[in-house]
Amino acid sequence: MLDSKQETEFEILAAEIRLETFRELAELGFGHIGGAMSIADVLAVLYGGVMKIDPENPAWEDRDYFALSKGHAGPAVYAALALRGFFLKEQLKTLNKSGTMLPSHCSRIHTPGIDLTTGSLGQGISTAAGAALASRILGGDNYAYCIIGDGECDEGQIWEAALFAAHQKLDHFILFVDANKLQLDGPVAEICCMGDIGEKFRSFNWHVQTVDGHSVAAIYRAIEAAKAAVGQPSVVVLETIKGKGCALAEEAAAKGQGIHHMLFPDQETNRREIARMEQVVSDLKAKRGSR
């Protein structure tokens, strides 16, 4: 069970992930803000306590595996890794710059804490399933977690992997669908409507849950339920808002502007957004202190 103290800790981490992600992208001047913000809460739950990880020893053999199949949201994972101490926060300023350890999309050979290279859509689900398969054959208790996007479900390989994971009864495989309902060209429903994603996975014999993707408590409970589902892989469809928690992105989205990839050229606006996000973090920390 999740107590309110831990829930607040997750919320603080989510707010910090958003803040650091925004700082990374503002420093660079552009980036995938929308899809990074929408997964901040699930990342906070995973990196804030659910996943077995050791920042001092990223190759710890009992660790859990994580694949950000929607690899363009890498900056949010980098924020989580830095906040958990896999590397110094200073490194975040080097995002995407020549010589960086933090390339635009996640890379196993560049970044401590990244086990599975991702970026091209539809791929991380297979590599994570491979890690879950390895864990099962080895008789380990390692879980493999993976986040895909709802637009990413257009890729046929998603369903190859879905079929395989269910057939292999990979019950240490927990998949999240970041259902933020927008892809590069516009609304998922208008481009190639996925219909009910959860039902599709159910028909592939997956354990399926749909939760508020911005409620750390709901995400935490869903992971507990997923772990209790024996003999089948689990998918948690996260109902999310693209750009969530970044006022700039949310306002742009409200005006119908695409926020998959955004420019941040205006330093003053960036400073205001950072100040606002810092305030969110301090308010949450104050809530923790007042308990």
Binding site: Q123, S126, A128, A129, F164
Partner: peptide
């Protein structure tokens, strides 16, 4: 049999599964 995995007629998924297994030490 545990160490011969048939992924079905899905070569693209096979490459990903192979990557995940190799990343886990196989």
């Amino acid at each position: 049999p545990k160490r011969v995995i048939n992924v079905g007629i899905a070569e693209q998924n096979m490459m990903g599964i192979a990557a995940g297994l190799a990343a886990s030490g196989y």
